[in-house]
Simulated scan of single mutants.
Amino acid sequence: MTAAHCVRRKLYVRLGEHDLGVREGPEIEYKVARVIIHPQYDATTVDNDVALLLLPEPVEPSPRVSPACVPEQGAALPVGETCTIIGWGKERDTHIFGTDVLHEAEVPIIDNAVCEAVYEDYYITSNMFCAGFKRGRVDSCAGDSGGPLLCHRQGRWYIYGITSFGEGCGKRGKFGIYARVSNFRTWVQSVIATTFT
């Protein structure tokens, strides 16, 4: 699963990756066999910013590669709860490139009314939500798009969000904007049932 706006002609998925500059041993790279972009994805508003990637073979879980769950369709966001974002994006807005080492940060999920008030120039749809701090500093950034926002609940990790867009990186008074995965579970299941089997 990734963001629709990240889809390119050729895509590769590397599992078990941590440091892009070092061959650590367990990394496995696949050329993506097929991409399914959400049929209602809108590149202008970035609504429905989700795509599914089919790998050429099933992946076996391992100590470095483990699956995350998708929340139930329409599941409420854990507003106020701190969740984890990960990616190889820029550490700061002023940096030219992303990092070589996978970074993670903890950010709280923000109530949609607060998010909408902050982003008056954007239409925050019901398929989006915000996460971050009003003071800024901790945020996803360019290069993190398509990565997950993961919440740990009842002993399991759930993908509640996909990094989508934002205004700056860690900008005071702004939040990161994420695709709301719980709105797409039914679509994901139908794609798996009809396309990937």
Rank of each mutant, 00 (worst) to 15 (best):
F129P: 07
A179R: 00
R153I: 13
H95T: 08
C6V: 04
W187R: 00
A76G: 07
Y30T: 12
R156T: 10
I192S: 07
R185F: 04
N183C: 07
A105M: 06
I110W: 02
P56S: 10
P67I: 05
P39R: 12
E57L: 11
A4K: 01
R8A: 15
E17R: 09
H152W: 12
I85W: 05
F184I: 00
P71A: 00
E81L: 11
Y122L: 15
V22M: 01
V118A: 15
K134E: 14
N48S: 09
C115H: 04
G16D: 03
R8I: 12
S66H: 12
R153E: 12
V46L: 13
A75Q: 05
E72M: 08
C115V: 03
V59H: 06
T163F: 04
P67Q: 04
Y178Q: 08
L77K: 04
L54G: 09
P78E: 02
V114I: 10
A117W: 04
A75I: 00
P56K: 07
V101E: 11
R135N: 09
G132S: 03
T45M: 14
Y123R: 10
T94Q: 11
G89K: 03
I37P: 01
G166M: 02
K10T: 13
H38Y: 02
Y178M: 10
R64P: 06
V181G: 00
D100M: 14
T194M: 01
T94C: 03
D47V: 06
R172M: 05
V188G: 03
R92M: 09
T194P: 01
I37K: 13
V118E: 07
Y122S: 14
H5P: 01
D139K: 04
C151T: 09
H18W: 12
V35D: 01
N183H: 11
S62T: 15
M1F: 09
D49Q: 01
P63V: 11
D49R: 01
A193S: 08
